[in-house]
């Protein structure tokens, strides 16, 4: 058990190191002056531009040798000091991300959890009856092939632009300040529904297919046949099959995180939803390398933490591991 987690954690740490290094390296190793766009904002005369360039080059630490910049970067990560955003200048990147993370988490986590449970249930239902199998399964395949942004556009078009039922952009209305009041919460929820639905719906399909296939496989296995021969009620057999199938589905959850990140980013773009995905996109289009690094770092940390949580859940839920743990301790 310990060996397993040690191995896991060391792989995560290695991944973190690789990702951070790439994150740090790409903007710096690319040709061109990272401050060019930022300096252009100051509309300075040529001499003044030179002066500002020198000033900011130092202020952003580009005058240091690369290895030092790299070490400083790591030092910054440990102190959660991710530099100053150019796009939000002079707000620190950590503050900017702090302002946006709630919106991303508030969408992504409920969408993943709901889709996971509902999808698994749907899959289990499909495995039960031929009629359901013939409807849920094809639908699930289509849903799995649907681009997130397209479904988001469908919702925005029909429920927003055409019928004016729900707001089709922003996370809350103009003129409201994001603080904990009922007005704000109501406003937030109203803007939350469409992006949530679009994420939730697309995420459903995969789980349903996976669960349906796993259950059918389980029902074909020896123990199921055996149980049936012993005269166990079909419901009981199915329940066992479902439980056994949830395990691999959980691993599937870890593996799907990367695609969920992609879905989240394009969905936030469609609904102009002020989460980290939109922030990441803005950082890239505005060449704000510090914000981009910070947002990417956050994505990496999120994915790694989620992987780790799923690992723990897996071990907790899997009876065999529980036994082996007890065995190891006893």
């Amino acid at each position: 058990m310990r060996r397993y987690f040690l191995k896991k954690i060391s792989i995560y740490l290695l991944t973190f190191w690789v990702a951070v290094t790439i994150d740090w390296g790409i903007p710096r190793l690319m040709p061109g002056n990272p401050l060019q766009v930022f300096l252009l904002k100051f509309r300075a005369q040529p001499d003044a531009a030179k002066y500002l360039q020198a000033y900011f080059y130092k202020a952003f630490g580009f005058n240091e040798p690369l290895w030092k910049q790299y070490l400083y970067y790591w030092d910054g990560i440990f102190h959660w000091n991710l530099g100053v955003s150019m796009f939000y200048y002079p707000t620190p990147v950590a503050t900017v991300i702090g302002q946006h993370i709630f919106y991303t988490m508030g969408l992504l986590v409920p969408a993943i959890i709901c889709a996971y449970f509902v999808g698994n249930r749907l899959g289990a239902m499909a495995a039960r009856r031929k009629v359901l199998d013939n409807s849920i399964l094809p639908a699930s395949y289509l849903i799995s092939g649907t681009p997130y942004q397209w479904f988001a556009m469908l919702l925005a078009f029909f429920l927003g632009a055409l019928w004016h039922l729900l707001p089709e952009s922003n996370a809350f209305a103009f003129g409201t300040t994001p603080v904990w009041t009922w007005t704000f919460i109501g406003n937030f929820l109203e803007h939350w529904i469409l992006p949530f639905l679009s994420l939730f719906f697309i995420m459903l399909g995969g789980w349903a297919i996976g669960m349906r296939n796993l259950i059918i496989y389980e029902l074909e296995s020896d123990y199921a046949h055996w149980l049936q021969m012993l005269g166990s009620p079909a419901r009981l057999v199915r329940r066992y099959a479902y439980r056994n199938a949830v395990l691999p589905q959980l691993t599937g959850l870890a593996l799907a995180l990367g695609t969920f990140v992609a879905g989240q980013i394009v969905t936030e773009i469609v609904f102009n939803y002020q989460g980290v995905g939109l922030l990441f996109f803005n950082a890239i289009t505005n060449s704000d390398i510090f914000l981009m690094q910070g947002a990417f770092l956050l994505v990496i940390i999120g994915v790694l933490v989620a992987n780790f949580v799923i690992d723990i859940v897996y071990v907790l839920v899997d009876p065999r591991t529980r036994v082996s743990m007890m065995g190891a301790e006893g």
């Binding site: 996971y116 949580v309 009876p319 065999r320």
Partner: peptide, 29 residues
């Protein structure tokens, strides 16, 4: 081997996943 399962692991999974939801909520707090 499956017979040793006592509690629905769905419950455990739900608790842990819900826990991961609470963290960001604390952040906004």
């Amino acid at each position: 081997m499956f017979a040793r399962k006592k509690k629905g692991f769905l419950g455990v999974a739900a608790v842990v996943l819900a826990g991961s939801l609470v963290v960001p909520l604390l952040a906004i707090g």
